[in-house]
Design a protein around this nucleic acid. Sequence first.
DNA 1: TTAGAATGGAACGGAGCCGAAATGATCGCG
DNA 2: CGCGATCATTTCGGCTCCGTTCCATTCTAA
Lengths: 116, 116
Amino acid sequence: MLIELKPMQALTLWKEIAISEVRDDAHDLTMRQLAVLLTVYLEPPPHTIRGMAAKLGVTKPVITRALDTMGGYGLVDRHRDDKDKRNVLVKRTVKGALYVEKLGDLVIAKARGLPL
Amino acid sequence: MLIELKPMQALTLWKEIAISEVRDDAHDLTMRQLAVLLTVYLEPPPHTIRGMAAKLGVTKPVITRALDTMGGYGLVDRHRDDKDKRNVLVKRTVKGALYVEKLGDLVIAKARGLPL
DNA sequence: TTAGAATGGAACGGAGCCGAAATGATCGCG
DNA sequence: CGCGATCATTTCGGCTCCGTTCCATTCTAA
């Protein structure tokens, strides 16, 4: 659990992660794409385009395009809702789960290395 | 200090911050720009273009353009080094300091709100 | 003093994302 | 059944960022 995280530590953690993302990230995800990805993998389904657009405070095409890009990477999948065929449900993939898991490990590793 | 940060918590923290950035961020900074900004404000000077490019693992024009953009926002400043006039030193600004400080507060606030 | 190295920046074409508006498919109420 | 509402996607013009390459300035060492 997080206890007494100080401003300097918080910023250092954020900086280290940002640099790691810039240096190593193969997919070069946007902040918006990252927000979409983590929402899909951390919040309970179902995930619709409209719902995610509302949650992130962006327009629907932003979500559609983010899913296009990340779908191309194999990080997410989507198909029509059988109940209401207007809806599109975003699904998780094995590849995406591995990617998210690696991201979590990175945050933890960087958090451990923080100076006192 | 960070103690026993678990994978789920780490990812939730990162997700919350990403969403906040997407929703509220006035400047809409790229991950690279963010990495540059935090490097300038968290690591000891001097900061040269070449040095930061090496640190972030990107090309020089990336740093130059990031400084152009953020300089336009007033988040950073730069001028020639008097000792070696080939170098350009990146300087901090009051506006940039406030922005970074707010970012730190955001991380802390989100960290506090993490579920057990 | 001068040749070569180093530094930051500019120019270029290409690629991706943006918001707004239009499109196509589907639902549900009357 | 039909028509308006809802949902996701596509289209459009515009903007920003990308990497590569080239250039001007400045330093350094022979």
